[in-house]
Design a protein around this nucleic acid. Sequence first.
DNA 1: TATATTTGTGTAAAATATACGCATTTGAAG
DNA 2: CTTCAAATGCGTATATTTTACACAAATATA
Lengths: 230, 230
Amino acid sequence: MKLKQNINLAVDGIIFGYQDHQLYVLLIKQKYGSQKDKWALPGGFVLDDEKLIDAVKREVKEETGVKVQYLEQLYTFGDDIDRDPRFRVVSVAYFGTVNPKHMELKPTTDALDAQWFSIAKMPKLAFDHNKIIEVALDRLRGKLNYQPIGFNLLDSKFPFSDLEQLYMTILDRDIDRRNFRKKILSFGFLEETDEFHKAGSGRPGKLFKFNSKKYKELEQEGISLEIKFA
Amino acid sequence: MKLKQNINLAVDGIIFGYQDHQLYVLLIKQKYGSQKDKWALPGGFVLDDEKLIDAVKREVKEETGVKVQYLEQLYTFGDDIDRDPRFRVVSVAYFGTVNPKHMELKPTTDALDAQWFSIAKMPKLAFDHNKIIEVALDRLRGKLNYQPIGFNLLDSKFPFSDLEQLYMTILDRDIDRRNFRKKILSFGFLEETDEFHKAGSGRPGKLFKFNSKKYKELEQEGISLEIKFA
DNA sequence: TATATTTGTGTAAAATATACGCATTTGAAG
DNA sequence: CTTCAAATGCGTATATTTTACACAAATATA
């Protein structure tokens, strides 16, 4: 079989962070090419002996200094055949999360132009990256309803009000505080701590933490973790 | 930026069919290479100017003669770096369905060794293809619960008992016939016909058909199509 | 001390899921 | 033709889950 493909394989990372009731995504400024100076998703070409997910970790780290906590494959975009005149680029997109403690951008030589952008105020990005972010957002919203992915976006200890706010922000709708709490607690994968949240005013809320061991047990047992709320 | 990647891009198709209360997947016998004579998923390398999904359609057609009705991207497998000694292969897997009318294998020159294998009796396949089929099955089972994908595996007109059986076969559990019927009908995307199913014995069942226009409307309105049953 | 604010718990009503009874329509057996 | 078994179609009672919302408790501030 003859084969001389002119296709290059890349990865892109759609990395979400959450702070001050806002969902953010990590972007870098393009340094070369036709889309120079436009903002784009971090990413780059895969090395020959490197797993796809490792390529994403490496590129994100190199370009922004951020170490990603959670990462999963999102979709492979490969139909924009004429994006680069030199060769066709097929890109495997990964979507991931970073908790608030690790959102800091460490400026290495290669990371001068990295920034967190609020989803609410997204600029026009290079290539089809706006579209890719929409796909990632859909996935994030979907996952929120049946997997405990929201906890990855919060500090390890958090009050219920923060979790509530996170769900409301990302899903863009109202949630009844009391029913939400009951439902989440009923799953049994949250653990009380003896610490309290120091709010500006009002009764301080107990801090909870996610017990991933317990969650894995529940998952094994095949228990439905579907989250619905008014 | 220098770049001389030694990676080739392929696609694989996990094509499901359903007949006689059994779920089938389409396989071909490997003709070359280290895995010669083993059964494998249909697929092959992507042409430079061809969309990924078109590559799947083409390969499946070439290798088996089957025209796929429904196709969606499943996952990109690229971490088995040493699978081929000549170069690394990264493969984008698509999962699809064929209805019973189109399951016939047309023997073209290239399609002598294609066959439908029952999921219940799957042989050991080439590469990691057994694993890929498991991923596809998980997706199929998942989709069955919130999307009307089952209809793609049946004739356009079908009795309720067939739909029931399909769900029971794929999900591998019992379903209450009466509650299932009520639930599915309540969505409103099924249309009665005036034809009847000629069963061996017992009261003949009315044939229904899937109204995809109606379904799209419901989808637009954002109505939940979650299917649960006892 | 009074008031606003946020948290924590409970409870009743509404909606949905589950279990299952039974009449209806057919083919086949007697 | 009658009877029986098998599959379909429709209905209803019960259990479970979701939704709406009342109210007490704990804290900051005026």
